[in-house]
């Protein structure tokens, strides 16, 4: 019999502390980063900063056009990527049988997810801006971000749809519903919390991306009127302010606004999803 240096009871205790520590360290890192950004950034934030146009290349004035640009590109990305990603997920998990094409699609989305964002940017420049003639615009930016958000939305949606118990589908089909009615009335409502999480993760990736849109949105400092105008979303503004040494204070201010925006989106959707789940599952 091998000699046991650590008793099972102690091993259990040690491992529990190791996992506990990992959890705590993760949370601490998060708090430090967000806290630091907010601490450095909040002094720059006031009503004028949020509502005014920038002046003197962003040294002074506000970031209103950047907030609007960010909302525009994220909205375009969401509107384009959500139906595509969720649609592909429905097809793969409900209709397609496991074959080479399905495996290839899955492999494709995994690869798409791992392509560096700057490469997406380069592709966007040559395809959307030049080839399709969309020019430097928030539309081009939104479409590039849609490509980036697509794999996240697809993957999370596929997992959530596949996690819907088979018994729900059988119950629905046995009542004489068609496959589509089953998907639409039972499977999707049950998968909505997961799908929403996927969409939010994709949107979060889109709203915080600078490299991917560097070459495609132009760099206008003025307020964009429509998605066909060039603009400068928050992460890009932050990048320019910091890398060109224009104003570190305003760079932190911009970062803080971005972080707060992300927090609002996440908390809001989490609350909504929890409420929906509670109603659905009766807990």
């Amino acid at each position: 019999m091998p000699f046991k240096i650590i008793s099972p009871k102690n091993a259990q205790r040690i491992m529990k502390s190791v996992f506990w520590a990992s959890g705590i360290i993760t949370v601490i890192i998060l708090i430090i980063i967000i806290g630091y950004i907010l601490l450095k950034g909040i002094p720059a934030i006031n009503l004028e900063f949020l509502l005014a146009n920038p002046s003197d290349s962003g040294r002074s004035g506000g970031i209103a056009p950047m907030i609007v640009s960010s909302l525009y590109v994220t909205l375009v990305a969401g509107i384009v990527a959500t139906p595509l990603g969720v649609g592909a997920a429905i097809y793969l998990s409900e209709y397609a049988s496991e074959n080479r094409i399905v495996k290839f699609i899955r492999f494709g989305t995994e690869t798409l997810a791992s392509i560096p964002s700057i490469v997406f940017g380069l592709f966007g420049l040559s395809f959307f801006v030049i080839f399709l003639g969309m020019g430097w615009s928030l539309l081009s930016g939104g479409l590039v971000l849609a490509l980036m958000a697509l794999p996240t939305i697809f993957q999370v949606a596929e997992v959530s749809i596949e996690a819907v118990p088979r018994s729900y589908r059988e119950g629905s089909l046995a009542l004489g519903s068609t496959k589509w009615e089953t998907i639409y009335r039972v499977v999707l409502p049950a998968a909505i919390p997961g799908i929403t999480t996927g969409i939010i993760l994709g949107m979060a990736r889109a709203i915080s991306e600078a490299a991917a849109i560097l070459f495609v949105v132009g760099s206008a400092l003025s307020m964009p009127i429509s998605i066909f105008d060039p603009g400068r979303p928050l992460p890009l503004h932050l990048f320019v302010l910091a890398s060109e040494g224009i104003s570190m204070d305003n760079a932190y201010g911009t970062a803080a606004v971005l972080v707060i925006l992300l927090l609002i989106i996440t908390v809001l959707t989490n609350t909504l999803v929890e409420k929906y789940q509670k109603k659905m599952m009766g807990r």
Binding site: P165, S167, Y168, G171, M280
Partner: peptide, 18 residues
């Protein structure tokens, strides 16, 4: 679809919809 309307089924494990 019409057949399953005429022949209903109750499963082993209760499977109400959420």
């Amino acid at each position: 679809v019409d057949l399953r309307k005429r022949i209903g089924m109750v499963f082993q494990k209760p499977n109400p919809f959420p």
